[in-house]
Simulated assay, not measured.
Amino acid sequence: MSASDGEQESPPGAVTAPRGYELVLPPGWARIPLREGTKEALERILFSHMEQVPEGIPRDDAMRFRLDMRRQLERQARAARRNGGLDLYLPVLPRGGIFLMASFIVAELPIGQAHVIPQQAVIAELANEGVPDGTAKQVDVAGAPALRRAYGSPLTEEKLSSASEAVQQDALPTRRVDYVIPVPDDPGRWISINFSTPGDGDIDSEFTGVLVELFDAVVGTFKWSYE
Protein backbone atom coordinates (compact mmCIF):
# COMPACT_ATOMS: atom_id res chain seq x y z
CA MET A 1 0.00 0.00 0.00
CA SER A 2 1.25 3.47 -0.83
CA ALA A 3 0.11 6.91 -1.85
CA SER A 4 -0.03 5.90 -5.50
CA ASP A 5 -0.83 2.18 -5.72
CA GLY A 6 -3.32 0.95 -8.30
CA GLU A 7 -5.55 -2.10 -8.57
CA GLN A 8 -7.39 -4.12 -11.14
CA GLU A 9 -11.07 -3.45 -11.63
CA SER A 10 -13.29 -5.46 -9.30
CA PRO A 11 -16.70 -6.96 -10.07
CA PRO A 12 -19.67 -4.62 -9.45
CA GLY A 13 -20.82 -4.73 -5.84
CA ALA A 14 -17.71 -6.54 -4.61
CA VAL A 15 -16.26 -5.42 -1.26
CA THR A 16 -12.61 -4.59 -1.73
CA ALA A 17 -9.93 -3.18 0.54
CA PRO A 18 -8.24 0.06 -0.52
CA ARG A 19 -5.00 -0.16 -2.45
CA GLY A 20 -3.60 3.13 -1.28
CA TYR A 21 -4.38 6.49 0.22
CA GLU A 22 -4.43 10.16 -0.70
CA LEU A 23 -3.82 13.35 1.27
CA VAL A 24 -3.29 17.03 0.55
CA LEU A 25 0.14 18.43 1.43
CA PRO A 26 0.89 22.00 2.52
CA PRO A 27 2.81 24.17 0.04
CA GLY A 28 6.51 23.38 0.05
CA TRP A 29 6.16 19.79 1.33
CA ALA A 30 7.10 16.67 -0.64
CA ARG A 31 6.61 12.92 -0.49
CA ILE A 32 9.50 10.44 -0.56
CA PRO A 33 8.30 6.88 -1.31
CA LEU A 34 10.22 4.33 0.75
CA ARG A 35 9.47 1.01 -0.96
CA GLU A 36 10.54 2.01 -4.48
CA GLY A 37 11.50 5.19 -6.30
CA THR A 38 13.30 6.62 -3.25
CA LYS A 39 16.49 7.57 -5.09
CA GLU A 40 14.60 9.28 -7.92
CA ALA A 41 12.46 11.26 -5.45
CA LEU A 42 15.53 12.47 -3.58
CA GLU A 43 17.19 13.58 -6.81
CA ARG A 44 14.06 15.48 -7.83
CA ILE A 45 13.79 17.20 -4.46
CA LEU A 46 17.44 18.17 -4.18
CA PHE A 47 17.86 19.59 -7.65
CA SER A 48 14.38 20.89 -8.41
CA HIS A 49 12.45 21.62 -5.22
CA MET A 50 15.48 22.90 -3.33
CA GLU A 51 16.64 25.55 -5.75
CA GLN A 52 16.31 27.87 -2.77
CA VAL A 53 18.60 27.76 0.25
CA PRO A 54 18.12 29.34 3.68
CA GLU A 55 19.16 32.93 4.23
CA GLY A 56 22.76 33.31 5.37
CA ILE A 57 24.18 30.51 3.20
CA PRO A 58 26.50 31.93 0.50
CA ARG A 59 25.74 31.00 -3.09
CA ASP A 60 29.08 29.19 -3.33
CA ASP A 61 28.00 26.89 -0.50
CA ALA A 62 24.63 26.01 -2.05
CA MET A 63 25.81 22.69 -3.51
CA ARG A 64 27.42 21.67 -0.23
CA PHE A 65 24.15 22.50 1.52
CA ARG A 66 22.21 20.31 -0.93
CA LEU A 67 24.63 17.40 -0.46
CA ASP A 68 24.39 17.68 3.32
CA MET A 69 20.60 17.68 3.01
CA ARG A 70 20.77 14.63 0.75
CA ARG A 71 22.72 12.68 3.36
CA GLN A 72 20.23 13.64 6.05
CA LEU A 73 17.24 12.72 3.89
CA GLU A 74 18.79 9.37 2.94
CA ARG A 75 19.39 8.61 6.61
CA GLN A 76 15.79 9.51 7.49
CA ALA A 77 14.47 7.38 4.62
CA ARG A 78 16.52 4.33 5.64
CA ALA A 79 15.39 4.58 9.26
CA ALA A 80 11.74 5.02 8.24
CA ARG A 81 11.89 2.05 5.85
CA ARG A 82 13.35 -0.20 8.57
CA ASN A 83 10.35 0.64 10.75
CA GLY A 84 7.79 -0.38 8.13
CA GLY A 85 7.58 3.03 6.51
CA LEU A 86 5.69 3.46 3.25
CA ASP A 87 6.21 7.19 2.64
CA LEU A 88 8.18 10.00 4.24
CA TYR A 89 6.86 13.57 4.06
CA LEU A 90 8.80 16.71 4.90
CA PRO A 91 9.14 20.39 3.99
CA VAL A 92 11.62 20.95 1.15
CA LEU A 93 11.29 24.70 0.62
CA PRO A 94 12.20 27.38 3.17
CA ARG A 95 9.44 29.47 4.71
CA GLY A 96 10.45 32.97 5.71
CA GLY A 97 14.05 32.15 4.91
CA ILE A 98 14.27 29.07 7.13
CA PHE A 99 13.54 25.37 6.74
CA LEU A 100 10.93 23.94 9.07
CA MET A 101 12.22 21.07 11.20
CA ALA A 102 9.30 18.67 10.89
CA SER A 103 8.33 15.44 9.15
CA PHE A 104 5.78 12.67 9.19
CA ILE A 105 5.87 9.03 8.13
CA VAL A 106 3.09 6.77 6.87
CA ALA A 107 3.86 3.18 7.91
CA GLU A 108 2.30 -0.27 8.13
CA LEU A 109 1.58 -1.65 11.60
CA PRO A 110 1.64 -5.34 12.60
CA ILE A 111 -1.54 -5.19 14.69
CA GLY A 112 -3.70 -8.30 14.82
CA GLN A 113 -1.95 -10.07 11.95
CA ALA A 114 -1.67 -13.35 13.85
CA HIS A 115 -5.22 -13.19 15.24
CA VAL A 116 -7.94 -11.05 13.74
CA ILE A 117 -9.17 -8.68 16.45
CA PRO A 118 -12.17 -6.36 15.97
CA GLN A 119 -10.79 -3.00 14.96
CA GLN A 120 -13.00 -1.05 17.36
CA ALA A 121 -11.72 -3.20 20.24
CA VAL A 122 -8.10 -2.46 19.31
CA ILE A 123 -8.75 1.29 19.15
CA ALA A 124 -10.57 1.27 22.49
CA GLU A 125 -7.78 -0.69 24.14
CA LEU A 126 -5.09 1.62 22.82
CA ALA A 127 -7.06 4.69 23.90
CA ASN A 128 -7.55 3.26 27.40
CA GLU A 129 -3.83 2.60 27.77
CA GLY A 130 -3.17 6.30 27.54
CA VAL A 131 0.20 7.92 26.89
CA PRO A 132 2.65 9.00 29.62
CA ASP A 133 2.66 12.81 29.74
CA GLY A 134 0.37 12.88 26.71
CA THR A 135 -3.10 12.10 25.44
CA ALA A 136 -4.73 9.25 23.54
CA LYS A 137 -8.25 9.45 22.18
CA GLN A 138 -10.52 8.03 19.51
CA VAL A 139 -11.05 10.27 16.49
CA ASP A 140 -12.53 9.96 13.02
CA VAL A 141 -10.25 9.69 9.99
CA ALA A 142 -11.77 9.26 6.54
CA GLY A 143 -15.18 8.78 8.17
CA ALA A 144 -14.13 5.87 10.39
CA PRO A 145 -12.81 5.42 13.96
CA ALA A 146 -9.06 5.82 14.47
CA LEU A 147 -6.69 6.66 17.34
CA ARG A 148 -4.78 9.91 17.91
CA ARG A 149 -1.89 10.06 20.38
CA ALA A 150 -0.01 13.25 21.27
CA TYR A 151 3.02 13.44 23.52
CA GLY A 152 6.45 14.95 23.98
CA SER A 153 9.75 13.15 23.53
CA PRO A 154 12.20 14.87 25.89
CA LEU A 155 15.94 15.30 25.41
CA THR A 156 17.83 12.57 27.28
CA GLU A 157 21.48 12.16 28.11
CA GLU A 158 21.49 8.94 26.06
CA LYS A 159 20.18 10.73 22.99
CA LEU A 160 22.61 13.61 23.45
CA SER A 161 25.68 11.42 23.92
CA SER A 162 24.85 9.15 20.97
CA ALA A 163 24.03 11.92 18.49
CA SER A 164 26.79 13.12 16.21
CA GLU A 165 26.89 16.71 14.99
CA ALA A 166 25.40 15.60 11.66
CA VAL A 167 22.32 14.08 13.31
CA GLN A 168 21.93 16.45 16.23
CA GLN A 169 18.31 17.13 15.24
CA ASP A 170 17.44 13.60 16.36
CA ALA A 171 18.66 14.46 19.85
CA LEU A 172 16.35 17.45 20.27
CA PRO A 173 13.19 17.23 22.36
CA THR A 174 10.26 16.78 19.98
CA ARG A 175 6.50 17.11 19.90
CA ARG A 176 4.97 13.94 18.45
CA VAL A 177 1.51 13.09 17.16
CA ASP A 178 0.56 9.60 15.95
CA TYR A 179 -2.58 8.45 14.19
CA VAL A 180 -3.36 4.70 14.15
CA ILE A 181 -5.82 3.85 11.38
CA PRO A 182 -7.38 0.47 10.47
CA VAL A 183 -7.54 -0.44 6.78
CA PRO A 184 -11.24 -0.88 5.90
CA ASP A 185 -12.42 -4.31 4.73
CA ASP A 186 -8.97 -5.78 5.44
CA PRO A 187 -8.89 -7.22 9.00
CA GLY A 188 -5.45 -7.27 10.58
CA ARG A 189 -4.06 -4.43 8.46
CA TRP A 190 -3.36 -1.03 9.97
CA ILE A 191 -1.34 2.03 9.11
CA SER A 192 0.08 4.80 11.25
CA ILE A 193 0.86 8.43 10.46
CA ASN A 194 3.63 9.62 12.74
CA PHE A 195 4.52 13.31 13.05
CA SER A 196 7.57 14.73 14.80
CA THR A 197 8.93 18.25 15.23
CA PRO A 198 11.25 20.09 17.62
CA GLY A 199 9.33 23.24 16.65
CA ASP A 200 11.29 26.31 17.61
CA GLY A 201 13.17 24.45 20.35
CA ASP A 202 10.28 24.70 22.81
CA ILE A 203 7.89 21.80 22.27
CA ASP A 204 5.17 23.61 24.21
CA SER A 205 5.45 26.93 22.35
CA GLU A 206 2.76 28.54 20.23
CA PHE A 207 4.89 28.01 17.10
CA THR A 208 5.21 24.28 17.80
CA GLY A 209 1.47 24.14 18.37
CA VAL A 210 0.88 25.71 14.95
CA LEU A 211 2.96 22.95 13.33
CA VAL A 212 0.88 20.32 15.14
CA GLU A 213 -2.32 22.00 13.92
CA LEU A 214 -0.92 21.96 10.39
CA PHE A 215 -0.29 18.22 10.64
CA ASP A 216 -3.77 17.56 12.03
CA ALA A 217 -5.19 19.53 9.09
CA VAL A 218 -3.23 17.32 6.67
CA VAL A 219 -4.60 14.16 8.30
CA GLY A 220 -8.04 15.74 7.94
CA THR A 221 -7.62 15.44 4.15
CA PHE A 222 -6.74 11.72 4.33
CA LYS A 223 -8.87 9.36 2.26
CA TRP A 224 -8.52 5.83 0.96
CA SER A 225 -7.81 5.15 -2.71
CA TYR A 226 -9.33 2.21 -4.56
CA GLU A 227 -7.82 2.91 -7.97
Rank of each mutant, 00 (worst) to 15 (best):
M1Y: 11
S4L: 02
D5S: 13
E7V: 11
Q8C: 09
P12Y: 07
P12C: 06
A14Y: 03
A17R: 06
L25E: 07
I32P: 03
I32N: 07
R35L: 14
E36C: 07
E43D: 15
L46D: 13
L46H: 13
S48L: 15
S48M: 14
E51F: 14
Q52W: 15
G56Y: 05
R64N: 04
F65L: 00
M69Y: 00
L73E: 01
L88R: 09
P91G: 13
P91Q: 14
M101Q: 14
A107W: 00
A107D: 07
E108Q: 09
L109A: 12
V116K: 11
P118K: 01
Q120P: 02
V122N: 08
L126Y: 11
A127C: 11
P132Q: 15
G143T: 02
G143W: 04
G143A: 13
R148L: 07
S161C: 00
S161R: 09
S162Y: 00
Q168G: 01
Q169A: 14
Q169L: 14
Q169F: 14
D170V: 04
L172K: 10
V180S: 05
P184E: 08
S196F: 05
S196W: 03
G199N: 05
G199D: 04
D200M: 03
S205I: 01
S205P: 00
S205C: 01
G209W: 04
V212D: 07
E213C: 04
F215T: 00
D216Q: 12
V218K: 04
V219S: 08
Y226V: 02
Y226L: 02
